[in-house]
Design a protein around this nucleic acid. Structure first.
Lengths: 214, 214
DNA sequence: GTCTAAGCGGAACAGTATTCCGTTTTTATA
DNA sequence: TATAAAAACGGAATACTGTTCCGCTTAGAC
């Protein structure tokens, strides 16, 4: 056994010398159904608890609310920080996946505009987790990279489609945009409700109308 | 009793209705000598422990090294974070006070240059505490304000005296300078030793020679 | 149905902050 | 200097935490 960067414990390839077993059977039946179910429940519960009580919520509370024993939590996440990282990862995934959904259901510009708000909400909600990120715990080391790896392509796709449809200007970079929205949300933090949304909307309007500078 | 912003516990004015007692005696004899001594020892020890073991050092360790009981620590600092804040405050004071000492013992420009290095060392050493600052603990809320309140006037005085003596240009702002040095020290963090010092020295040289731009 | 090991639960451990209260020490007063 | 009241002290006890350990349960292959 070894620990993935993700923090989940995974079976290492057990010795392959016995040959003939189908790899499918190996991979499928390796994880018991109840274990997978518990893992999922755990992540969902942790997400809810972190959202309501903050990332400092005790592991015990999460275990209780998920209806599992503490041992089970630690079986899936050797350290408390691994659980936090996994939740963060899952939320990044959800945000990235939203891009596909939106792209399928809206015109390119609308998909882009909606996703930007979705992303803004994500950033705003994750300020607590951001704090954890800077705690120096190695469990979080891979998160920034994962963040880029998932979110950048998602946004790039939306941008490209909107550009191809002639709905927005062509000179904006996905990275820059992600960073810009993030800082908008950070600085609009303690301002009244709706301010971040408005600033992001402004930014999106700029995508449509602004003249290319430099 | 109420808690000062500083986190120390202080006697509220006891009822003054009995009139005639001299205010001096009141104010002087209000704190027992051993208490004051312990408070001081505690702060000194905590400073040393934080410097060597980081701000996460257990309260017990500090109490032991200071030669007092845990109860005494908590009598002076109701929360662990109050102790951290008090230490930080004291170091800000020391840094600010150094300005006067330097001003008295050096020519204006030298005083300024020395103090800038002193301040740079302070910023560099306090990276750990900076992390604590962003933890959201209300005990730290007043620190940024205190930082400005103490350090800005200290630097302004040195700047003014150097300017009056015609030793530096007149168009630099104390705030900007504090910020600039801080960011220099932050970014030079993981670079080899002495780099921050050199960058700050560069900045100080700029004070003497640079042309005013805008 | 049986067997095996993956998975589970939660008591036990270790380490922390914080509280509580009987004891000691200072200091005002005589 | 002797005394008493109040202030401060010390540290055992409490209350939470994260984490480990191991006997028990149960999914799933045969």
């Amino acid at each position: 056994m070894f620990r993935f960067a993700s923090g989940c414990v995974v079976n290492d390839q057990t010795d392959d010398s016995d040959g003939g077993m189908e790899p499918r059977a190996r991979a499928d039946r390796r994880v018991r159904a109840d274990a997978r179910r518990n893992l999922d429940t755990l992540l969902q519960t942790a997400m809810a608890v972190f959202a309501s009580s903050g990332v400092d919520a005790p592991v015990r509370e999460i275990a209780e609310r998920a209806g599992v024993g503490i041992g089970t939590v630690y079986r899936h996440f050797p350290q408390r920080s691994d659980l936090i990282a996994a939740v963060f990862r899952r939320e990044i995934d959800a945000c990235a996946d939203a891009a596909s959904t939106l792209a399928a259901g809206h015109r390119p510009f609308d998909a882009l505009a909606n996703w930007m708000q979705r992303y803004a909400a994500f950033v705003a909600a994750k300020r607590g987790l951001a704090k954890a990120l800077h705690s120096g715990d190695p469990a979080f080391d891979s998160l920034p990279g994962y963040f880029d790896q998932r979110l950048r392509p998602a946004l790039r796709r939306l941008l490209d489609e909107a550009t191809d449809a002639g709905e927005i200007r062509a000179d904006v970079d996905a990275d820059e945009l992600l960073g810009a929205v993030a800082s908008l949300c950070m600085s609009a933090h303690n301002a009244g409700s709706g301010r971040a949304e408005r600033m992001v909307a402004l930014l999106v309007d700029g995508l449509r109308h602004g003249a290319k500078s430099s």
